[in-house]
Design a binder for these strands. Structure first.
Lengths: 199, 199
DNA sequence: CTTTTGTTGTAAGCGTCGCTAACATTGCGA
DNA sequence: TCGCAATGTTAGCGACGCTTACAACAAAAG
């Protein structure tokens, strides 16, 4: 898929991203070793550095792919929904689907610090922004006459609730506490109802 | 503080935990190198392995310290509050204080996977449980006649919202979106109001 | 068609890391 | 006092990210 014949390798850059993405999905960011990737692609251990400044730059590209996918899932969810309220709910579900369906990728997406956004590649920044806008749009559409501050506040707190719940679950932090009358699915429903409800 | 004279080192185990905790606070979990710690304590690079199975076991101990501190902060917050509602709010604020005041430690506390809790040290598990119970107690006290499921649900979603917000902020994920009419402090107030309000 | 130039690859090696094995020292309890 | 378990050391293995110096190649320039 990425191996055109004739040249040294074909498209090593794309092949590296694909291989890294596969490794991330399998075992999260820490499962990616540049030396491993190079060897599995039949290339020397120094070759990746012709295409990426360092390990982090490659992983950022994988994270960008994740955000691009998320944005696409948002669009699909909103296009298929009958009304803006349902669209918002489906958008949130798309987030959950990505998080629980591909936990390695999800962790990668939020592992790379964007605190100093200067050194992050534009592909990651723009993909992350695109995903944010998908969320923001859904919240806006569900309540068009709300003022800007309220919409932003509800977008952020809603995102935070979903994200926090996912993080805690995947970190095993709710292991002993979610038993008895609570189930994960039930809790998710409650979160969707409450979080995406009124302003 | 941890160096009694006379024996080989005194109390290397405690010294390692203290040094690791300092390193974690300064630069997060990834800033901890067993070789570094050993050298800075004037001990060989193999010495730490007499006290900890591996690097992770040492870091788990640091995380346990963090949870113990958190539980203590919860108790203080609840003891000083005039009524259960205020106690709940102060408890949440204690969480935020730890997260934003000691981000390295906070990251460490949630970095070690507890998914397979079997291999985690009991100190970490019990400290984490103690912290959870501090939260749970605050939610219960604020609304004593609520049923068990509701209390648990509200504890978890409240925790998730706080935790998610912190995670997103510290990862730089809200960089471009929290501007304009929103400030971080304002958002926190809104989160505290909404999250800890009704059932 | 040849030459030049810039891109993409390789080989070798540096420094760091976590961790282990074999051996030395120390203090405590029998 | 002596033996033993606990705690330390030296040396080294294998893996890692990354760099430097050099080689092959494709495509543009002559």
């Amino acid at each position: 898929m990425a191996t055109q014949r004739g040249y040294h390798h074909g498209d090593l850059r794309a092949a590296l991203i694909a291989a890294a993405a596969a490794a991330v999905e399998a075992g999260g960011p820490e499962a990616v070793s540049l030396r491993d990737l190079a060897q599995s692609l039949g290339v020397s251990t120094a070759a990746p550095y012709r295409h990426f400044l360092d390990r982090r730059a490659l992983l950022d590209e994988v994270a960008a792919l994740g955000f691009a996918e998320l944005a696409k899932a948002y669009q699909r969810a909103q296009a298929d929904a009958p009304d803006p309220q349902a669209a918002l709910r489906e958008t949130a579900k798309a987030y959950l689907t990505l998080a629980f369906g591909r936990p390695g990728l999800f962790r990668m997406m939020f592992a790379s610090d964007l605190v100093d956004a200067a050194d992050a590649p534009t592909s990651l920044l723009s993909a992350a922004r695109e995903a944010w806008e998908g969320l923001y749009h859904a919240v806006t559409a569900a309540d068009p006459q709300a003022d800007l501050a309220s919409v932003k506040r509800r977008t952020i707190t809603g995102w935070a609730t979903l994200h926090g719940f996912i993080t805690l679950v995947q970190g095993g932090r709710l292991k002993g506490f979610m038993t008895e009358p609570l189930s994960e699915a039930e809790l998710l429903e409650a979160i969707l109802d409450k979080t995406l409800g009124e302003g």
